[in-house]
Nucleic acid binder design. Structure first.
Lengths: 259, 259
DNA sequence: GCTTGCGCCTGACGTTGCGTCAGGCTTTAG
DNA sequence: CTAAAGCCTGACGCAACGTCAGGCGCAAGC
């Protein structure tokens, strides 16, 4: 026992106490406890009193942990990676990158939604919930595909999914923008009482068809799903999962858009 | 009792059962339970068997909840907002927007870090942890100011903070990029054994000073803090919070960089 | 030798927003 | 009338620690 303690003292220069050690990596002592308990980072040893002792080699590992945490990996993933259990870094990195990009897209949309909502409030003071909700619907329309599950057959949905994966994010962004502006224009046309038979309305309907084609990739099955979607909208209790209003749909229909 | 049940039946067209109701807003029944329990969304009533009953007015509230959740508010915040307890929407929105923008910055940096790490791996196959860590340090250098607390006086830090707020994100991005490339170039110069007195070294040192000046805004106090930082690096246990290596610092010093 | 103060330890509960059983009614479709 | 849905209430689980609470260990000053 005494011998062991003496040995530890002879190498004491290399040992850090929890406080110091944690500070070196910018984490808390509690975090060290946690990592110890879950087996992510075990101290090099314990004193006879149970104090944790760390050394430089532990610091390297801790830094790796912090680094991987920075890019959003879970502690479990980090453990698997560092212990080389069934994982390789390259795969993990590319997967994680995709996940982060997805998250960023969500953030972008949320930020945009707030932006628009704030613009609205400037003019109307009162937070018009209906408008606010619509903004977010439109922004999510093409990206958040949950509502499609109700209308597309499983195969059609898979096709759609494949298409989404082959389409670059930029194009999706573009499409989203196109939809938003087209719907806005149609709404304006409706508000202005434009004749659905007029040239302007025809042009709008043509653009609508174009977008639908671009969206579905010309797949008949998907278009059928869209038709079903639109019919159901008529007795929809609220407008929630509806990407555009009845008026807009009716106008386009009347103007001869294939919808 | 019988009367109450009858009344409910007479208005049964307006009532939704949990399943339907949840589907209308795209949430799960469990979510409704949760919202009920925490008092965020109480059903309009319960049947004698204890079944929850919702109506359209509840749906409006649920949609508001979903909408606010989309922009990242917590359920507690949403409750306070909808119940108009001490909160106003305008403030909440702008605050939330800032938070989201911060998060997006973090994501951007993480994505960039992964990007660079992957580039590294292409060339060296093995994931050089040291390099990987450095990448993230450099990316965070100007943005994640935790380490500055150790070196800057409180006033100097505040100045820095103010400067950061007055500087547009684009400029920060640019500066970050400049630093990264400059440090890389200096590292190459060191590796190539470039003479610190050479013209090339002088040019590098000049650029260095420029960046320091741009970074500190020419503030003497901040520059003093940087000097202190650099001296301490000599006996730093690891390179963790060091934005650049000893060699780079020594080279710039030798080449006459002011720091 | 004794106190003071800082640091260390081990539980153990709190947080956020539900998912996921488990066990037992109720309602509805056939 | 019966079986299949759907509903209910607990209660545990998750991620990554923060935050007590209660109790030692250790070095320094008296």
């Amino acid at each position: 026992m005494l011998l062991v303690e003496k040995m530890m003292k002879t190498t004491s220069e290399l040992l850090y106490r929890p406080n110091e050690f944690a500070a070196l990596a910018g984490v808390t002592v509690r975090t060290l406890h946690h990592y110890d308990r879950i087996g992510l980072l075990r101290p090099s040893g314990y004193t006879s009193a149970g104090y944790r002792q760390y050394r430089k080699s532990d610091l390297v590992r801790l830094q790796q942990i912090v680094t991987l945490k920075f890019i959003g990996l879970s502690l479990k993933q980090i453990r698997d990676l560092l212990d080389r259990k069934s994982f390789d870094l390259a795969t993990a990195l590319s997967q994680q990158q995709e996940i982060l990009v997805d998250k960023r897209r969500h953030l972008d949309r949320a930020i945009k939604a707030i932006e628009k909502a704030r613009q609205l409030k400037v003019s109307s003071e009162e937070p018009d919930w209906e408008d606010f909700r619509k903004i977010i619907e439109v922004i999510n329309m093409q990206n958040n595909m949950d509502w499609t599950q109700k209308y597309y057959s499983e195969e059609a949905r898979q096709k759609l999914e494949e298409r989404r994966q082959t389409v670059s994010p930029h194009v999706v962004e573009q499409g989203q923008h196109d939809w938003a502006s087209l719907i806005r224009e149609v709404e304006e046309a409706v508000a202005a009482g434009t004749d659905p038979a007029s040239e302007k309305a025809q042009a709008l309907a043509a653009r609508w068809s174009e977008l639908i084609k671009a969206f579905t990739g010309g797949d008949a099955e998907i278009q059928a799903g869209l038709n079903k979607l639109y019919k159901d909208q008529a007795n929809w209790p609220t407008t929630f999962p509806k990407p555009y209003s009845d008026e807009v749909g009716a106008f386009i229909c009347a103007a001869g858009g294939k919808k």
